[in-house]
Every structure is written in structure tokens, then in C-alpha cells.
Write a protein that binds this DNA or RNA. Structure first.
Lengths: 182, 182
DNA sequence: ACCTGAACACCGTTCAAGT
DNA sequence: ACCTGAACACCGTTCAAGT
């Protein structure tokens, strides 16, 4: 509070005229962060693409504001914040319960991945003599690819559950009741 | 430090004879937490079961010590800590690179899920008049089922990638080069 | 080798007093 | 309506001095 006051050219105590306490201030920062989430308009590729883009944009936010994101990740979640992303799943055509399960799975993964990236991957997993030989895959993590790897694992798992006769990513056969029709 | 000192019947400054600073103390707590991770011996069911049990036990740890786990989740990760779980993947027969990708995906998900549980799910996603009608699926999350939902999504996605001609969980056909043979 | 008093440089927050 | 000085009850940490 004292430092923030200084930054604003004011004494720390003045802040209490505008904010109840420090906790509320941090909460507000988190709120602003979440409001900044850009949910991309529907692209081609059905709900999968839409969901993938939404969570990529989630990760982008975490990368842009790692400190605030860490606050966010360990703070009780306001329902409004969750709704932003939940609506993507619903809007993509998922029923209530599957949408909820999917929402929790996808946001758990995304939050966990973002934190892992922020705090840094354990790069040098093997310190032994083979370290140099193994260096390439360990040293430089392709962050986008690593995130997509897990994200697509979950998304295609969801697709199979929701649409068991859909093809594996090849040109889709006619699906009896595709979730993409709202 | 002052409170801990009091708890130990000693002045705060005495702690600095045993620990460099507060940061190191918290780091030590995280270390102890991770050392407490019980990796279950191989059960039936191939690497999938082993991996599933390992990450369930990870979640169990987070539930048992939520405060320390939150510290863990936002702290740079020591390599020793990661090795504990990484070894399960390797021991389960995965090659280096797939094991790394799988490790990052699975632990991202598990850490993210654990945090979501700790800070509380946004239960009342819809506050409108339909809230009561929708209550059952929203009000009480079956936590174990929700965790397994996402975990199994990832695990079976991995299985498909590693063993494309394996069956969907039915009695497995002979696999050409099953990852279970180290 | 371990503990302590005193001190330093900080915190968040309240509140009566100012304008 | 907003800001401030003074004060309260805290922090983590250092260091010379004790045993």
C-alpha cells in the first residue's frame, strides 16, 4: 500500500478512501485480468477449434501477467470469472453436465500448465553424464507445442465421449447428433 | 518467523542459526511435502493404472496439505521433486520424449485440478431463477469423479498415441511395440 | 555452538484532524 | 469528499554481545 501510494504521489492511508483493504485491491487486479480474456469468435472446425482458441487465449493472458495470474490461481474463484469460459463450452453446444466437466478439466489443465511455465519447467531432469546427450529434448521446451499437446489430448478425449462415431480427425462422417448444432 | 519462534519457545532471531531465511524455510516445507508422495507399487492394468495411482496420490497430498501445496504450485520447481513422478512414467515404459510430454501434461492437470479444488469450485454458476432446477449437478461436485474424468481423458489419449492399434480398453490385441516392455 | 536484546527498515490499517 | 500525521501492532533480518 505504501509503495502504491508513493507511485500515485499520495500517502498510503489515502488509498483507504477508494479501496477497503489490500486484499480487495489484489482481487480487483485479478478481476481486471480475467475481464481482459479475449474469447475468439467461432472459427472453422466446430466447437473443438473454438474451445482450443479460448484456452490458448487463457494461457496468453497468464503469460502476459504472470504475477497477477499467480494470484488468480490461488484465490477463491468468483463465479463471474468462471462464466466467461464456461459460456464458450455451452455456446459450443455442450449440455450442462458435460460442459461443466469439460470446463473443470480444461481450466484445471490450463491453469496448471500456465503455472508450470511461469515457475519454469524442471529442464535438467537428468544431471548425470548423459545430460549432454539428452540435452535437446530437455533443454528447450517448445512451450506452445507442449501446451497444445495436453490440450488436444483433452479435447479429442472429449470429442470421443460426446460423439463416439465421429472420425479420428479425418474428414468427419455424418454424426447423428453432432454437438456443433447448438 | 516470530510466530514460529514463539511456537518453539525461542526468539525469532534464533531461527537464523538453523535456516538462512524465511524463503528457505518455506522451500523446506515444500520439499518435505513432495518427499511424502507415495508412489504405489505396480498394480494390474499396465502403465495406465500405475500412472493413474501416482497422480491420485499426488492429489491426495495436495488435499492433505493445501497451504503448503499452494506454496509448491507457485514456486520454482526443484528437479528432484519432478523426478519422483517422472520416474513413474519412465518406469512404466515410456520413451524419454513421450514421457516428458506426458509428465508435463499430467502434472499440469493435476496441479491445476488440486488448486481448483482447494480454492473451491465456482458452484453456483447460474444465479438466475433456474438456479434451483440446475442445483444438483452444480451444487455438489463429486471431487474424485471430476478428477478422474480429466485424468482418464489424458491417460487414454496418451494410450492412443503410444499404441494406436490397441483396443479402446477392451482386452488388448497384441500390440506391435507396446510401451510396457521398457 | 547456540541464544538474545536492541535495532533497522519495513508492513497494513485506523482515526482524529485537517481542507 | 478526499487527504494527512501520528500511531498501533505488526513484519524479516542483522549483529554485537552473551553463555
Amino acid at each position: 500500500m505504501r509503495k502504491l501510494g508513493r507511485e500515485l504521489g499520495v500517502e498510503a492511508m489515502s488509498l483507504y478512501n477508494h479501496v477497503p483493504n489490500k486484499e480487495a485491491l489484489l482481487g480487483g487486479m485479478v478481476e481486471v485480468l480475467i475481464e481482459g480474456l479475449e474469447i475468439p469468435a467461432a472459427t472453422s472446425g466446430g466447437w473443438e477449434g473454438k474451445v482450443r482458441e479460448a484456452f490458448r487465449s487463457y494461457l496468453k493472458l497468464a503469460r502476459a501477467h504472470p504475477e497477477v495470474f499467480q494470484l488468480f490461481a490461488t484465490r477463491p474463484l468468483g463465479t463471474g470469472e468462471a462464466l466467461r469460459i464456461f459460456e464458450v463450452l455451452r455456446g459450443a453446444g455442450l449440455e450442462l453436465v458435460p460442459a461443466l466437466q469439460a470446463f473443470r478439466a480444461l481450466s484445471s489443465y490450463t491453469v496448471g500448465y500456465a503455472l508450470a511455465e511461469i515457475r519454469g519447467f524442471p529442464l535438467e531432469l537428468e544431471g548425470g553424464p548423459r545430460a549432454l546427450e539428452l540435452a535437446p529434448p530437455l533443454k528447450e521446451v517448445d512451450r506452445d507445442a507442449q501446451f497444445d499437446f495436453g490440450l488436444d489430448l483433452i479435447i479429442s478425449g472429449l470429442r470421443q465421449k460426446l460423439d463416439p462415431d465421429g472420425a479420428q480427425g479425418d474428414p468427419p462422417r455424418r454424426s447423428r447428433r453432432g454437438p456443433e448444432h447448438q
